[in-house]
């Protein structure tokens, strides 16, 4: 992420969370946090507890974020934010938390005589991580039609072409779903598992080989030792944790989408 991208990310993030942008320059911004946001990111529970128990006047923090230090000529004090900085990681985490579940409707042109029928879909974004002593991650965006069970890949990207709204438009008619959302979720889970099964798992085999090799070296070291010391067991355990292949399936977010 370039400074520009981070800058616009911050702007959007705070706007969407109703925090007032006090000043917006091209390489730093000043934000007035709301009480909710202060509680989320300022890590001062005792202050808020004290304030609430004494009925004090809340004074949520005002923060300055510098998004491009190289352009900074002004004498500004603030947090330098860049990819890898703890603050940005924290905001990413909050974004994930606050953007996990949606229900959206596709907009329909007004003035049509007949009601438009909207079809319900369940969309889920999965992150699949392969771990041994190395890692690799893949993102899958899947959608399933709750009427027909039809599957769609790259579902999230396909939504970007549509005009979506949180409110159900007038003049539309929602089909009641035939496949219940939770049942659909199970199906998508199964699709992901199947995809994983079909995938190339040489990486796990290779990790196993490395593990085996290291174990042989260790055994050689303690060859002929009757009472093996504790550190032998510790070492073996460490190897297991180092090389054992694990696959983690994580849902980033998902929701119900009513589409034309």
């Amino acid at each position: 992420m370039y400074p520009q991208q981070i800058h616009s990310y911050l702007l959007q993030f705070f706007k969407e969370n109703n925090c007032q942008i006090v000043s917006d320059n091209d390489h730093f911004i000043n934000v007035q946090l709301t009480i909710e946001m202060d509680k989320k990111i300022m890590n001062r529970p005792f202050y808020w507890k004290y304030l609430e128990s004494t009925n004090g006047v809340p004074d949520p923090a005002q923060l300055t974020f510098i998004t491009d230090k190289n352009k900074l000529d002004e004498n500004i004090k603030g947090e330098v934010v860049h990819i890898g900085s703890p603050r940005l990681s924290q905001l990413f985490q909050v974004t994930k938390e606050l953007g996990s579940f949606v229900q959206m409707y596709e907009k329909v042109n007004d003035g049509l005589e007949t009601k438009t029928i909207l079809t319900p879909w369940l969309g889920v974004n999965y992150k699949v991580s392969y771990y041994s002593d190395q890692t690799k991650e893949t993102l899958y965006s899947l959608g399933i039609n709750l009427m027909t069970g039809e599957l769609k890949e790259a579902f999230q990207e396909s939504l970007y072409e549509m005009d979506l709204d949180v409110n159900m438009p007038d003049n539309t008619f929602n089909l009641p779903y035939i496949i219940k959302p939770l049942r659909a979720l199970e199906r998508l889970d199964a699709v992901i598992e199947n995809t994983i099964q079909q995938d190339d798992h040489t990486w796990a085999e290779e990790a196993k080989m490395r593990w085996k090799k290291d174990r042989e070296v260790l055994e050689h070291f303690y060859e002929g030792v009757e009472d093996k010391p504790d550190c032998y067991e510790t070492e073996k355990e460490a190897m297991e944790q180092q090389y054992e292949a694990r696959i983690k399936i994580e849902i980033i977010n998902g929701g119900l989408f009513y589409l034309k």
Partner: peptide
């Protein structure tokens, strides 16, 4: 689904997806 919690913000939803995509580790 059972209306015990409210739905989230669509823009934040999109941002979260995009961040995940940008920061994805695509290679061992």
């Amino acid at each position: 689904l059972e209306n015990r919690e409210t739905w989230d913000n669509w823009k934040l939803y999109k941002m979260s997806y995009e961040i995940t995509k940008t920061n994805l580790i695509t290679d061992f």
